[in-house]
Design a protein around this nucleic acid. Sequence first.
DNA 1: CTGAAAGCGCTTACAG
DNA 2: CTGAAAGCGCTTACAG
Lengths: 341, 341
Amino acid sequence: MKKTTMADVAREAGVSKSTVSQYVNGRYDYMSEQTKQTIERAIEALSYRPNTLARSLKQKQTSTIGVIVANLLNQFSSEVVRVVESVCHDEGFHVFVCNAEDDPAKEKQYIEMLLDRQVDGLVLFPTEANKAYYASLLKQGYPLVCLDRLVDGLDAPFVLLDHAQASMLAVDYLVSKGHRDIGFIGMPVGEVITARIERREAFEAAMRHRDLRINEHWLQNVPLDNMHDVLEDMFYDDGPTALIAANDQTLNEVLMYAKKKKMKLPEAFSVVSMDHVSYAPFFTPSITTIAQPATEMAECAAHWLLQWITSGERPSEAVMRRFAPKLTIRESCKENGELGE
Amino acid sequence: MKKTTMADVAREAGVSKSTVSQYVNGRYDYMSEQTKQTIERAIEALSYRPNTLARSLKQKQTSTIGVIVANLLNQFSSEVVRVVESVCHDEGFHVFVCNAEDDPAKEKQYIEMLLDRQVDGLVLFPTEANKAYYASLLKQGYPLVCLDRLVDGLDAPFVLLDHAQASMLAVDYLVSKGHRDIGFIGMPVGEVITARIERREAFEAAMRHRDLRINEHWLQNVPLDNMHDVLEDMFYDDGPTALIAANDQTLNEVLMYAKKKKMKLPEAFSVVSMDHVSYAPFFTPSITTIAQPATEMAECAAHWLLQWITSGERPSEAVMRRFAPKLTIRESCKENGELGE
DNA sequence: CTGAAAGCGCTTACAG
DNA sequence: CTGAAAGCGCTTACAG
C-alpha cells in the first residue's frame, strides 16, 4: 500500500504541488477560498499526511533533539528524560534517548549517530574524555547543553547542582547533631566524573573547615558491587557515627548492608542521602535527604536548548547555572551522644 | 559553516557521487583499490559524514522506532524504555520515547507524529480507545507490538504479564499464611486499562475460588491522591488483615499511610506488592513481591518488533505471550493468628 | 570498474 | 492567486 504523497493530493485537487504545500503550511494569504476547500477535501479523501523526513531534508531542521544520559538506572537520569521529553513535546520537538552507561566511547558514538540524523541539538551528561569533541561542536555553533557535570575549560552551557554546597550541607547538618566521625561513600569517579569529584572534594573541604579528621578508610568511591565489602571494612571495629551516601544507588547499598547486618538505624549510624529516593519519607527510619531539584534542572536544560535552536543563537544566560540542593530533615540522623562540650 | 556533502567528496576525489555512495555503503566488489583509497582520503580530509535523513527518504526506512509508554513515573515504563533502547542500539536502531501519561488522545497524537517521521515500527502500551486506529495500522502491515495490556479482538502481538496468575499467587500465598480478610488496592482502571482490570478481576476470582468473602470496601481502584483517604476508611474499624498493592506507586502510598498512622507492619496488616521495587529487600519489613520480568518482557517486545521490521513480515510467534510473575517471599506477611482449623 | 540520470517527497524563490 | 522549476543529499538501476 503506497503512501499518499503531496503529488497525489495535487492531482486529486487539480492544483500544483506548490499550492498544496502552501496550504499545508498555512500560507493562506493569497489563496482563494475555493482552492483551499478543494485541497482540504482532497487531503481528507486520501487521508494525506506530510512526510516529515522530506520536509526536514529541505528545511535543514528536524525538530528533533537527542538526550544522552549517564545511566538510565539512575533516578536522576530517568527524571531528566521524562522532563526533557515533556518540554520538547510541548514545543513540537521529538527526542531520541540514548543511554551512555557511563561509557565515553559509547557516548561519542551516540553523538555521531545523532548528528548523522541531523538532530537540531543535544543535551548530555558530559565526560572529560570527549571534551575536545564537544568543543568542536560548540565552535561550529551547534546547540548543546550539559547537565550534571562540569567540564573544565569547556565553553558550554552547564546546568549543575551545587555539589559543593550539597556536601557542605550534609556535613554541617551532621556536625550540628554532634557527629565528628563522618564517612562518605559513592560510586567511582571514573575518568573524571566531576559531579562525583565535586561531592567528594567538597566533603573533604567541609570536614577540614570544621577541623574534623578525615579518615581515608571512611571516604570511598567504589563500584556498587564492592560496597558491601567496603562497608564491612568500614564498620569492622569502630566505624563512623554518620555516613553520607553520595547518590541513590549508593544509598540502596548502604541500607541493604545495614539490614543484612541487623544494624538498626539511626542507632548504629546516621545516614544522609545525597539524592531523593521515593521511599525516603516512609522508610524506617525515614531518610534525611539532600535532594537536587531534578525537575527544574531538566526544565532549564530543555528550555535553554530549545531557545537556542529556535532563535538560532545561544541564549545569553546559557552559561552555567548552579542549582541549590535542598535539605529535608527526617529521622535517619540521631543526636550523637558522645558530643562533649 | 556548510556541512560537507557527498557531492563535495566526489569532487575532492575526482569521481562521481554514485561511486562515493557505493564506497560508503560498502559495495566494494567492483571497485579498484585506487579509487577506494582516493575516496577514503577525501572523506577523511573533509570529515564527511553521510546525512541519514536523505538516505532514509530514498530508502524508505529510517532505522528508527517509537516507544510510547503509559507513564514514565512508573518503574515498569522506565525499564521498558531502557531495555528497548538498548536492544535497538545493538541493532543500529534509534528510539523516540514518548510518554502518553495514560491519555489515549495524547497517545494517538504521538503515534501520528511518529508515523509522519516515518518510524519503522512502534512499541506501545495500548489503550482501548485507540483500538480502531491500531487495527488500521496493522491492516496496512505496519509493525507494531503491544506491551502490558491486552486489547480484546485486536490482532496484534502482545507481550503481557500473566496478571491473573499474579493475583492468584498473591491470594494463594496470603491464604496459606492464614489470611481470609484480604484487600486489594490499585490505580483507576481508566477507560479499560486491561492490566489493571485483569489484576483486579483475577483477585476476585481467586477469592471466590477460595470461598473467601470479597469486601467491596476493601477492593479499590482509585487515584494516588485519594489512596490515603481510602485506606483510612478501610482500616477505620476492622480492616483486612492483608493487603495487595497492585503496583509500585500504589505500594508507596500504602507504606506511607502505614508510616503516618504508626501502624507497624506486618503486625498491623500484611502486604504483598505486585511489582518489584528497589527497596523491597531492605525495607523493614522487607517486602514480599510478585514481580513481573520487566527486562525480559521488554526484550521480547523489542526483538519481535525488530525482527518484523528487518524481515518484512510479522514473526509467527508474535501473537501473544504471557510472562509468569515471580513470587519472592520476604517479611511483609505474617502468619495470621486467627487461623481456625 | 565507474558515471549520468532519475527519483525519494517535500519547499521555495520566482514568474506570470 | 497559482504553477514550473530547481534543489535538499542521498541511492539505484542502467549504460558503457
